[in-house]
Amino acid sequence: TTIGANAHSQASDSSSILLEAARGGNPDSVTLLLKYGADANIPKISGHLPIHVAADRGHLLALKMLVPVTDLAAIKWSGINPVHCAAAGAHTQCLELLIQAGFDVNFMLDQRIHKHYDDQRKSALYFAVSNGDLSSVKLLLNAGVLPNQDPVNCLQIALRMGNYELISLLLRHGANVNYFCRVNPLHFPSALQYTLKDEVMLRMLLNYGYDTERCFDCPHGDKVRLYAFEGWTSTVIKDTMFCEVITLSWLRHLSGKVVTVMPDYVDQVRICSKLKSVLQNQGLWSEIHFILSKYPSCRKLVKNTNCMLDLFYRTLFWLKA
């Protein structure tokens, strides 16, 4: 710079010298370029600014220098917030710095950005949850990020991962347990399908208001009939019932355990003929039959037992979180 180099030079993709310095993370280089007039608000063709690159690479010192010289209007025009970049890179310190500096944790990726992701993700929280990054998820939720803004629910991602701590954290901050997935439409809220093999996750959902009644809202009734449904095909069956899913050949062995847990969370349990025919071959059928036949009188006893179990599970995972 002292012999006439241009601090405003750009590469063929419009990447500035300052952006490349931010990518390298050398704070002395960033300081020198800013001193000689480098503009932190010049994007490359992709729309990324130096602050995005520093956050994505986890260069905390460089990021500190770029925060006060980056215009919010330039960030808005770019369609991506540096909070997304820090969350995507799992750089907790950078994320904390940006939150403290007042960056919007609920900034949504612009359509021209999120269309490149198959899951159409929009929020910084989605990136953190996808990474299984509990520290970043905590920072974002405590900063007021909303947990239900993405086309694919963040809770769904945590359930797929089977991460108890993430699930518990999201539920405590208002994650929607009653979302419906756009793929393979079900008559009951989609979250349940990820918990069929895990009683702990099942109880976590039920405790946070899962609409259990939808599972037993079934048109099959008591009539015995032949059922052809045996999974999803290229022609997706619309509004698939709970009984049709839980009685699939690879899931029916779980039906007794799942149905045994559910009566305490619903006012009325109506076992249709299809589900009943499978449950009767389960070892837990006598217990299920007893609960249903004596439902009003034994409900209080079952509820007290389940409440003790629920308290144990919730205390366990809150302590971990």
Rank of each mutant, 00 (worst) to 15 (best):
V245H: 05
G231W: 05
G79D: 05
Y126A: 08
E213T: 14
D28V: 15
D13P: 03
F242A: 01
D239M: 04
N304Y: 09
A86S: 13
N81M: 13
L109N: 00
A88Y: 11
Q268P: 03
G79Y: 02
C85T: 13
T315K: 12
L95H: 07
V152S: 12
H220S: 02
D211P: 09
T2L: 14
L141K: 14
L141G: 13
G79C: 06
V259A: 01
S130V: 03
V200R: 04
P296G: 04
L248F: 10
S16W: 05
D222V: 10
L49M: 02
P27A: 10
S255P: 05
R182Q: 10
V177R: 10
G162P: 08
L134M: 05
D264A: 13
N178F: 09
L205T: 07
L34Q: 08
P263K: 02
K223E: 11
N184P: 03
T240E: 04
V278H: 00
H173A: 05
S9M: 07
K76Y: 05
T240G: 00
L155Y: 07
R57Q: 15
K276H: 08
V30L: 06
K223D: 10
K223V: 14
N148L: 09
K320P: 07
M65C: 09
G79K: 02
R214Q: 14
S255A: 15
D110A: 04
L159Y: 12
T1S: 14
T305M: 15
L155G: 13
R214P: 06
L33P: 07
L311P: 06
L146K: 11
E213F: 10
H220P: 01
F317G: 11
V53P: 01
A74E: 07
S16M: 05
Y117C: 01
T195H: 05
A54C: 06
K35Q: 15
P147I: 10
L66Q: 06
H289L: 12
Y36S: 07
S135H: 06
F216L: 03
I113T: 01
L170K: 12
L139A: 15
S135K: 08
M204S: 11
K64T: 15
N26T: 09
V183S: 14
F290L: 08
S273T: 07
L18E: 01
D198W: 01
Q10T: 13
Q193T: 13
Y265S: 08
I237R: 09
R252E: 10
T233V: 05
F180E: 12
Y179G: 12
V30F: 03
N281E: 06
G144D: 12
P50G: 03
R121H: 07
T240N: 02
L66S: 04
P151W: 07
V177H: 10
E96C: 10
I51H: 04
K274W: 06
S123Y: 06
M204L: 15
L202A: 01
Y164M: 10
F188N: 01
V152D: 09
W250N: 15
L206V: 08
V53R: 13
A74F: 09
L49P: 00
N148R: 09
C243Y: 04
R57I: 13
G25P: 02
D222A: 11
Q10W: 01
L206E: 02
E96L: 09
L72G: 08
D198K: 04
F107N: 01
Y179R: 11
D133Q: 03
D13C: 07
P82C: 09
R57V: 14
V30N: 03
F312A: 14
M308P: 11
